[in-house]
Computed example of a mutant assay.
Amino acid sequence: MSILSLHHSDRGLHGDIHTLHPVRDFVADWLEATPAAILLRPVGAFLTEWVKSTPAVILFRSLHR
């Protein structure tokens, strides 16, 4: 039986430090290994800037100050 470990740095499956969130680590590693990861950062940056430029957010920020 073999174990596939995609964990980065020194937090492997058999290391001294055991992670408390194996599901979160698996999802993060899986997303980094998919072609969709190539698009996530540019799309995320675009959506963040788009939301910041909507009139509702501009109004909220001006009222919050």
Rank of each mutant, 00 (worst) to 15 (best):
M1D: 07
M1H: 03
S2I: 12
L4A: 07
L4M: 06
S5T: 10
S5Y: 01
L6W: 00
H7F: 04
H7S: 15
H7Q: 12
H8P: 07
H8Q: 15
H8W: 06
S9F: 09
D10S: 12
R11S: 08
G12N: 12
G12M: 12
G12A: 08
L13R: 07
L13C: 04
H14W: 14
H14N: 15
H14L: 15
G15L: 02
G15E: 06
D16W: 07
I17L: 06
I17Y: 09
I17K: 13
H18I: 11
H18Q: 15
T19P: 02
T19G: 02
L20F: 11
L20S: 15
L20Q: 11
H21R: 14
H21L: 15
P22L: 02
P22I: 01
P22E: 00
P22H: 00
P22Y: 00
V23Q: 12
R24F: 09
R24T: 10
R24P: 01
R24L: 14
D25F: 02
D25M: 11
D25G: 02
F26Q: 08
F26L: 14
V27D: 07
V27G: 04
V27T: 07
V27M: 07
A28W: 04
A28E: 13
A28F: 06
A28M: 08
A28G: 01
D29S: 15
D29W: 02
D29H: 07
D29Y: 03
W30N: 08
L31I: 03
L31D: 01
L31S: 00
L31A: 04
E32D: 13
E32G: 04
A33D: 09
T34G: 05
T34A: 04
T34D: 00
T34E: 02
P35N: 03
P35C: 01
A36W: 14
A36L: 15
A36V: 13
A37M: 06
I38K: 07
L39R: 09
L40W: 06
L40Y: 05
R41T: 14
R41F: 09
P42E: 02
V43T: 10
V43N: 10
V43Q: 05
G44E: 01
G44D: 00
G44R: 00
G44I: 00
A45M: 12
A45W: 08
A45G: 08
A45N: 12
F46Q: 03
L47G: 06
L47W: 04
L47R: 02
L47T: 08
T48K: 12
T48P: 01
T48Y: 10
E49L: 15
E49W: 15
E49N: 13
W50M: 06
W50R: 09
W50C: 08
W50E: 12
V51A: 11
V51E: 05
V51G: 00
V51L: 03
V51M: 05
K52W: 00
K52P: 01
K52A: 07
S53I: 10
T54P: 01
T54E: 01
T54N: 02
P55V: 08
A56F: 11
V57Y: 03
I58P: 05
L59C: 11
L59Q: 14
L59K: 13
L59G: 11
F60K: 10
F60G: 02
F60L: 08
R61L: 04
R61A: 02
S62M: 04
S62Q: 11
S62N: 08
L63K: 05
L63E: 03
L63V: 03
L63W: 03
L63F: 01
H64Q: 06
H64S: 10
